[in-house]
Design a protein around this nucleic acid. Structure first.
Length: 736
DNA sequence: AGCACGCCGACT
DNA sequence: GTCGGCGTGCTC
């Protein structure tokens, strides 16, 4: 083997480094380097500036454009084998190019923290647990007051053997308790195959069977499917049978969900079904756990990865299928750093890897329905609800000139009363946390504003504080108006906390659970509340939109959305789509076969076309009408957008920058893409920063990206860029 | 992104 | 007389 550094032909390492510069850095090989032992895709430790950094080797080439005397040598090669394969790197390069984000930073997004820090890519032997003698003789009923512990013990009974700690990450508190009680005991093993699955399929109905057959037949080549099924139509059963088909071919499956809180339930169902090793991946895992999950998928020791957006880039040893559930959910769009859409990127990844992508939703995004119309995606409908469950009834409640009590009309209060009297649960949504969104002085009209944002301070009564929901600044509640020094301060408007107060007074004998960012801050609090609701320990469930995601509450028969009007006239053109999806999703949360759900929408606009179409003709009719409007208005998905944002601590610099940028664009804009702005962001000042934006739009994605490619090269030299912070959002979903 | 270098204000 | 403010420039 030729020793490259000594040989006549020199060679150079091209290394990607996680800094906001979209270029590679050339290095000399390490002193002990032997050619052909090192392949692209390994991590290298390199001197960089004053310190050292972990980079990824992209290529080994025979020359360098940099003056060779300035080159430093790679200090250490960190991996024996590439941690990313050729196709993976190729896909990440595509991502870097499409989102105009530096390759080194894209790579950093794709690696777990431990690998980014240069820790060894090694799977530690892990602790596993087995039933103790005591645990195997303890009757399950003994734990009926502790459902989580009971579920865990049950898992061990069904499984019969050892289960690894990684596989039990969702049961951490219960695991500790059962260990303390002596029902379980730890054993140390090499990584084991967690094998509790029974593999029993349900009998699929005809539509499910068509979906299963179609997707299974597509394994091995690229195609996109949109599985459109209402809650309870059996999407998960389709997922599981398609996963089975992939597993049978020795392939891996990546399953993405919008929210962490949805992973435990699905993980449990998967574990009951599959004998193949399953790993989860999301931001609540420790660095070590994430490394373990990532490596076991990268090496192929696990076959199924279940995770959130942060799991998206995990390399698959034997790629088989990507499933993205609740594809309409905007949580799949990352809102800072690498602003990618996991949904869109999943399609691109499927294409790169030559594997099918399965999108699922009861309320597909307009983009996906548009792509079905263009025959890019194949629609697989599931129209039958399992078990003859009847459709929930959607009903508008006109609250114009109606007497209201804390945002609740008397009619709604009466309906709540009736429902509670029948020992059924009530679910109430209001998308505003805190006590009240405005504090106003009745004497002089003064309103509590945030010092740093263009926003009102929100009253948090229990903590006796005013808080800004945009920057987090706080101050104590004062009894006197700071402007006129009288005691005329009043709370205006409704938040979850205030409605909770009213409801606990009106229904004093009923148990209320409030679910919002404030009540679920504690780790595991959300899961505890959800379990409490499922166990029937709550009569009234009150919360923000976080309640609408995925969870099903069969004993809820009355659902009300209290404040839909704020979304009906929003400046954000996607607000209506989100509201329509929320209404239908919420309707799916409620009821079961013998107790159909009822959904009440309080509104002052009962004639609004969105509401009429949605209620009378359903989601698909709404979507069709909305798509027709998008054509008319020349909005996505009929056009493509890219949004430049700029912010600074003064009001002029961002505008100057965007104006200069606009000029630069127009000099390169032979394609005739539209440029709107600069305009101030909907919230012009946030956390002390003045924010402006420039929107680019074109009917041709190619033209748009061509212009972006041209201007981004010269953007660094723009002197106006020096004093501000800017970012580019390709395919923005929120124009804030 | 870090990190140094580099010229102008209030302090041991 | 200095400590330190963050503007500017560079990283193979």
């Amino acid at each position: 083997m030729a020793n490259c550094s000594a040989a006549a032909e020199r060679c150079f390492f091209q290394v990607a480094i996680a800094i906001p510069l979209d270029r590679l850095f050339d290095y000399l090989p390490p002193s002990d380097y032997l050619a052909e032992t090192v392949k692209p895709g390994v991590r290298v430790l390199v001197p960089f500036g004053k310190g050292r950094k972990v980079g990824l080797l992209m290529a080994i080439c025979s020359d360098s454009a940099v003056d060779n005397t300035r080159l430093k040598a790679v200090e250490q090669i960190l991996d024996d084998e590439p941690i990313l394969s050729g196709p993976d790197i190729c896909f990440l390069q595509w991502i870097s190019h499409y989102y105009h984000y530096p390759l080194g930073e894209v790579l950093a997004n794709a690696l777990p923290t431990a690998l980014r820090q240069g820790k060894p890519a090694r799977l530690d032997s892990q602790t596993s647990y087995v039933l103790s003698e005591l645990g195997s003789v303890t009757p399950m009923e003994q734990l009926k007051r502790a459902p989580k512990q009971q579920a865990l013990l049950n898992l061990f009974h069904n499984h019969g053997g050892a289960i690894s700690s990684t596989a039990l990450s969702a049961f951490k508190p219960a695991l500790q308790t059962l260990l303390a009680k002596g029902f379980l005991q730890p054993i140390s093993t090499v990584p084991i195959n967690d094998n509790p699955g029974t593999g029993t399929h349900l009998i699929a109905n005809p539509e499910q069977q068509i979906a299963i057959n179609t997707i299974s037949a597509a394994l091995g080549h690229f195609s996109v499917f949109l599985l459109e099924g209402v809650t309870g139509s059996g999407k998960t059963e389709v997922y599981m049978q398609v996963i089975s088909a992939a597993l049978a071919k020795g392939l891996q499956v990546l399953v993405l969900l919008p929210e962490i809180s949805l992973t435990p339930q699905l993980e449990l169902r998967f574990r009951q079904r599959f004998s193949a090793p399953i790993v989860t991946f999301h931001s609540k895992l420790s660095d070590k756990q994430r490394l373990g999950a990532w490596l076991s998928i990268q090496r192929g020791t696990a076959n199924i990865m279940l995770g959130t957006r942060s799991a998206f880039f995990t390399p698959l040893a034997k790629p088989g299928l990507i499933i993205l559930d609740e594809e309409h959910d905007t949580s799949f769009k990352q809102q800072e750093g690498l602003r990618f859409s996991a949904r869109d990127a999943a399609i691109a990844r499927g294409k790169h890897l030559g594997i099918p992508v399965l999108l699922g939703s009861a309320t597909p995004s307009l983009e996906s329905l548009f792509n079905v119309g263009r025959q890019r995606y194949q629609l697989l409908p599931l129209s039958t609800r399992a078990g003859n469950a009847s459709e929930p009834v959607l009903q508008l409640l006109d609250i114009r000139n109606k007497k209201m009590q804390s945002g609740l009309s008397e009619q709604l209060l009466a309906l709540i009363q009736d429902t509670l009297a029948q020992n059924q649960q009530v679910l109430l949504f209001i998308n505003r946390r805190g006590y009240a969104p405005v504090q106003i002085c009745h004497g002089c009209g003064w309103v509590a504003r945030c010092r740093y944002c263009d926003a009102n301070m929100v009253i948090h009564a229990a903590e006796r504080r005013l808080r800004c929901h945009h920057c987090g600044s706080e101050q104590p509640l004062t009894p006197l108006c700071p402007a006129c020094n009288t005691g005329e301060l009043q709370a205006l408007g409704m938040g979850t906390e205030r409605i909770e107060q009213t409801l606990t007074q009106v229904f004093a004998d009923k148990k209320l659970v409030r679910l919002d960012k404030d009540t679920t801050k504690r780790k595991g609090a959300l899961e505890d509340y959800l379990q409490c609701i499922r166990d029937g320990d709550a009569d009234i469930i009150l919360g923000t939109q976080m309640l609408a995601k995925g969870h099903h509450f069969p004993n809820v028969t009355l659902v009300a959305i209290l404040d839909i009007d704020s979304s009906l006239f929003s400046i954000d053109y996607r607000a209506e789509e989100k509201l329509a999806q929320l209404i239908i999703q919420v309707a799916g949360r409620a009821g079961r076969a013998d107790m159909p759900g009822r959904v009440i929408l309080q509104t002052r606009h009962p004639q609004h076309p969105l509401l009429l179409t949605l209620l009378n003709r359903g989601y698909r009719a709404y979507a069709q009408a909305a798509l027709a409007e998008r054509i008319q208005a020349q909005l996505p998905p009929y056009t493509h957008q890219a949004l430049f944002r700029a912010e600074a601590n003064n009001i002029t610099a961002p505008q100057l920058f965007l104006t200069a940028l606009s000029g630069l664009i127009n000099r390169h804009n032979s394609q005739g893409i539209s440029v709107f702005g600069p305009v101030s962001a909907p919230m012009a000042r946030r956390a002390g920063q003045f924010r402006f934006q420039l929107l680019l739009q074109s009917r041709s994605r190619k033209d748009l990206h061509q212009v972006l490619d041209q201007i981004l090269a010269g953007l660094g030299e723009l002197k106006e860029a020096r004093s501000i912070k800017w970012s580019l959002d390709v395919d923005p979903v929120d124009l804030y």
